[in-house]
């Protein structure tokens, strides 16, 4: 494995809640509860989980949109320096955004309707003092060509483009600063099947050509299985399992991963019974004691109700946070 580009160590993010002026504070929302993982250079890592599991909060932490309550996030910059992402404030964060860029879910709300495509894509070039004037225009044309847009359409406004084309504009904008890590927050969930396939192919070819590293944040396991090298599964602010994509899909070790995989219809689990979980995801304000998944787990024992499992390396590869991991199936 290559050297890690980004490393998260016991990162926590708690959002304090107020009950109102002069009233005792309510329990904080514990969105991210001590997650540790690293992203190797040139790999696609996927962070999966259902709504409210903290995956988007993790993306915001990594891009320094918010600061962690505890723990450390480090990034190896292009000059080889180690950047402490969590402590960046103000202008210093610019150095981070040169290396880390974000692609958003909704291609309709993430582009300024009053800017032309050329202005949208050239904005980061200007902000980072990469290119100006004619040079910038040439670079914009190159970028548009690269993501499969006609450079001749650069003076149009976003409304003239379809959803898939807008997502390409967002990708071109992210690539403008030549980032090393691209964080995609549900980049294809808002697109139709045939368009999503085009965008996923574009991601693959850009990765090959530009040596990009991706962090793919998604709830769609079929996208993960297709595009990711490694997967981390989140549940209620914790990573419950982490492994290579092939191993995780073949032999999930955490009961939650198993249920999540069985809920996704695909060619190879047509005949397998669907595992239907009981109950609902608990609130992040009121996380169950012990293992956060125990109230919905079919295999829960007394120890699960009392003590939280640690995130352990497994002898067969991968890491899991479970007292009694499921059997390994080679």
């Amino acid at each position: 494995m290559n050297e890690p580009l980004l490393t998260l160590t016991n990162v926590e993010k708690h959002f304090p809640q107020s009950n109102g002026f002069l009233k005792p504070a309510a329990a904080p929302v514990r969105a991210v509860n001590g997650i540790s993982f690293s992203i190797a250079e040139g790999e696609t890592t996927a962070l999966v989980g259902e709504s409210g599991c903290g995956k988007s909060t993790a993306a915001k932490l990594i891009t320094s949109a918010i600061t962690p309550s505890a723990g450390k996030i480090t990034l190896r910059t292009r000059d080889g320096n180690i950047l402490d992402v969590g402590s960046l404030r103000g202008r210093a964060r610019k150095a981070l955004w040169r290396d880390v860029q974000l692609i958003f879910q909704d291609p309709f709300s993430s582009l300024n309707p009053r800017m032309t495509v050329k202005q949208i894509i050239a904005e980061p070039l200007r902000n980072f003092d990469i290119a100006h004037g004619q040079e910038a225009t040439d670079l914009v044309a190159d970028l548009m060509d690269r993501v499969g847009l006609q450079p001749g359409t650069m003076s149009r406004y976003p409304h003239a483009f379809s959803g898939g084309q807008r997502q390409r504009i967002g990708i071109a904008r992210a690539l403008a600063v030549k980032p090393r890590l691209v964080v995609g927050d549900e980049p294809v969930s808002a697109l139709d099947v045939s368009v999503a396939a085009q965008i996923l192919n574009l991601f693959q070819s850009l990765k090959k050509d530009l040596g990009l590293t991706y962090l793919l944040i998604t709830h769609d396991l079929s996208v993960v299985r297709h595009s990711a090298d490694r997967v981390a599964v989140m549940y209620l602010g914790n990573i419950v399992e982490e492994n290579t994509t092939a191993a995780l899909f073949k032999s999930p070790r955490h009961p939650y991963t198993q249920a999540l995989l069985s809920a996704v219809p695909s060619q190879d689990n047509q005949d397998k019974p669907r595992i239907v979980l009981t109950g609902e995801v608990a609130s992040a304000r009121n996380i169950p004691t012990g293992c956060p998944f125990h109230p919905r787990c079919a295999y829960a024992t007394d120890v699960c109700r009392l003590t939280a499992p640690t995130f352990e390396q497994l002898p067969t590869g991968g890491r899991v946070a479970c007292h009694t991991p499921l059997e390994f199936m080679p």
């Binding site: 379809s162 959803g163 898939g164 084309q165 139709d192 099947v193 045939s194 368009v195 999503a196 396939a197 085009q198 996923l200 192919n201 693959q204 769609d220 079929s222 996208v223 299985r225 297709h226 595009s227 994509t245 092939a246 996704v264 219809p265 695909s266 060619q267």
Partner: peptide
């Protein structure tokens, strides 16, 4: 056929997805 081939769920991991030209 194209719609089914474009589904990541039915494709080989890492393989290029068959795509439909253009948009609806």
């Amino acid at each position: 056929r194209a719609l089914l081939n474009a589904l990541p769920a039915f494709a080989e991991a890492g393989a290029e997805l068959a795509t439909l030209q253009g948009a609806v």
